[in-house]
Amino acid sequence: MSLAKTAASRPKVCFLYIAQTHQILHSLPIAVALARGWPGLEVEIAATTQDHLDYARQLLDALGGAPIASRLLPPAWLRAVRLKEASTPPKALMLAANAMALGKMDAIVTPERTTAMLRKLGVRKPLLVYTQHGAGDRGGVFEPRLRQFDLVMAAGPKQRQRMVEGGWVKPENCAMVGYPKFDIIDALPGSPLPVFPDAKPIVVYNPHFHATLGSWPRFGVRVLEQFAADGRFNLIFAPHIRLFDGASQAMLESVAPFRDHPRIHIDLGGPAAIDMTYTRAADIYLGDVSSQIYEFLRTPKPCLFLNPGDVSWQGDESFHHWQYGPVLTSIDGLTDAVEAARVGHADYVTIQKTGFAESFDLTATPSSERAARAIAERVLAKARQAA
């Protein structure tokens, strides 16, 4: 069969969004590159909420558009279900409700791993493609569900090596493509920056949602209190979007005293919290196990890490990024430690640059185009075999 198919018979590639909006930035640039560069394929995006579709269409418009259809996944009653007021309906139930329709696709591209359950639901026809949604070190992302995907993308050699050597992904099923999120971030103007009354070093505090490794439950409010009391820094509190997604009223009230502070900007999940606006603007990173550390280190800058559980991390690849700055098990005198990290940054520049290079395989060819080619070649090869 000719690759110049009619529109009605072109292989269909669905970019699926069933989790929080931050994941859209990791695969949407691939959808754009695929739609623009491979007219033999039909590309669409499908999401479980209208907010997701609106955000994706807004990004597409800002990029100048692309021939990409979009659809809101049914059923409406399930879309209305929110566990603990979370921003998305239950992922597994939405997959089950849409398994038959998704099974008609030729490929399903997703930035999250829950979609692997489609195989258990009997979906066999489509290629399953996992793009990742970060390039971090936390061990939980290297797990058995990766084996369900026909193609798994790696941002760089460190991620690829860990997946292959761990037996989670076969070498032939792993494409090292770089970091497509960088492409879309570089192409867009970014969100408005917070306005502080005085120019001071900006610290971004970016705690993860992990129940034990994340620093918010044990340290979070005290972190905000110390920055509120110390006039040396401006602080952006931009936690991982999942930390406050579905947060209790008590948790929301815990940050209320700091909302009007002139030197503290709070963003619990807006566009600027996910589009690298803060990691690019900040002078110093304060966090724990979020993969956003690698986005921050696109330019080497001072880092400070919080170890609330006093875990033994040296030599553990899940905490590789804790080599990029001091690691604290106590936050007594935190702001003094931040200043010390700023002054002593020269001691960490070399390892930060090395760590970034190990994490991202960036070439002259945009990452999104490399990822699109990896998908297109597999989809079209399968189409030829079926002809």
Rank of each mutant, 00 (worst) to 15 (best):
S2M: 04
L3Y: 04
K5Q: 13
L16T: 12
A19L: 09
Q20I: 02
T21P: 02
L34W: 07
A35Q: 05
A35I: 07
E42G: 12
E44T: 14
E44D: 13
Q50R: 14
Q50P: 00
H52D: 06
L53T: 10
Y55I: 12
Y55S: 06
I68R: 05
P74A: 10
W77Q: 07
M94P: 12
L95W: 14
L95G: 14
A97W: 11
A97M: 12
M105A: 14
A107S: 09
E112W: 03
R113L: 15
T115F: 03
A116I: 09
G122N: 08
L127F: 11
H133K: 01
L146E: 05
Q148N: 04
M153E: 03
K158S: 04
R162H: 04
E165G: 01
W168V: 04
P171M: 11
P180L: 10
D183K: 09
L188M: 05
L188F: 06
P189C: 04
P197G: 06
A199M: 02
K200W: 03
P201E: 08
Q226F: 09
R232S: 04
N234S: 12
L235A: 07
R242P: 00
L243R: 10
A250G: 06
V255A: 11
D260V: 00
H261I: 01
I266M: 01
A272H: 03
I274D: 00
R280E: 10
D283L: 07
I284T: 04
V289M: 01
L297M: 12
R298N: 06
R298P: 00
L304C: 05
D310P: 00
S312I: 12
Q314T: 14
G315M: 03
G315N: 06
E317A: 14
Q323S: 10
Y324P: 01
T329W: 06
D332T: 15
D332M: 06
T350E: 13
K353C: 07
F360I: 10
T363N: 07
P366Y: 14
R370W: 09
A381R: 14
A383Y: 08
